[in-house]
Amino acid sequence: MSVDFLVAMVGLGALYALLTIGVALLFGILGLMNFAYGEIIMAAAFAMYLFQHSPWPVAVAMALVFAVVVALLSERLAFFRLRDADPVTLMIASFAVSLAVQSVARMTVLPRAQGVSPKSFLTRHLDLLGASVSVRELLTLALCGGALAAVALLLGRTGLGIQLRAAAENFQMAKCLGVRANLVIPCAFVVVGVLAAISSIVLVWRQGSVSADMGLQPMLIGVVGAVVGGMSNLRGAALGGFLLGAATTLLETVLPANLIAFRDSFLFTTVILVLIVRPQGLLSGAKVRVS
């Protein structure tokens, strides 16, 4: 395997892992299958479009702000009152939020797809171990890998992370132990907003355009990856997303040119096979019971 292929494969895997963690975190804590996740990604992408002529750190910072604000607003305006609702009600509410935000964007700022001019440094190539590697792929890997490492540190090494993981596993029990819902839930939405923003920045770099419905596909990738890895297990969800991304790159490389159009058919056939063998997901273990 060549270095450029490896960088592309691991980079896309890391991007998809970010998407799946964003979906799985809220599902674990609230039972919320958040279909509005795509619109948080869209909000960040819109910031990239709006600030495309500003220095890139400004555009990136604004993407983070837009995504976190939309994530927190969706929590405050829609999901706050539904905290104890059943998952189906939450899912329908998230559909409503998704369609509302998308429609508002389409009616106002994004009636049609808008191009975002690529930064010149993204189109360059670097010589790495004898191979020519795209800066865009390297940055995808660095940014998504860095974000994954930061999430791992937050969840594994901080008090907030321990409370988030406890809440993601059994929110009722966590609340009974005094874990504050009003701390954990908004923090989870902030984490989701940051992850969505980073994913969005990478997506805009790769696609070069922004549209009102651009969040749909990444959201579906997040849901599928999380289901493959195990919805109730954040590590499993990350693994599911990573494998999905890596398999996408692998299929693009190994499929003959006349079959490349069917890449997603091969990919999702594999997903179905995995779910036949392990319907609970790759890393979802049985819940602990002692009686």
Binding site: A166, E169, N170, A174, G285, V290
Partner: peptide
Amino acid sequence: SGRVFARL
């Protein structure tokens, strides 16, 4: 039944 957090 304990109800511990299994993955912690």
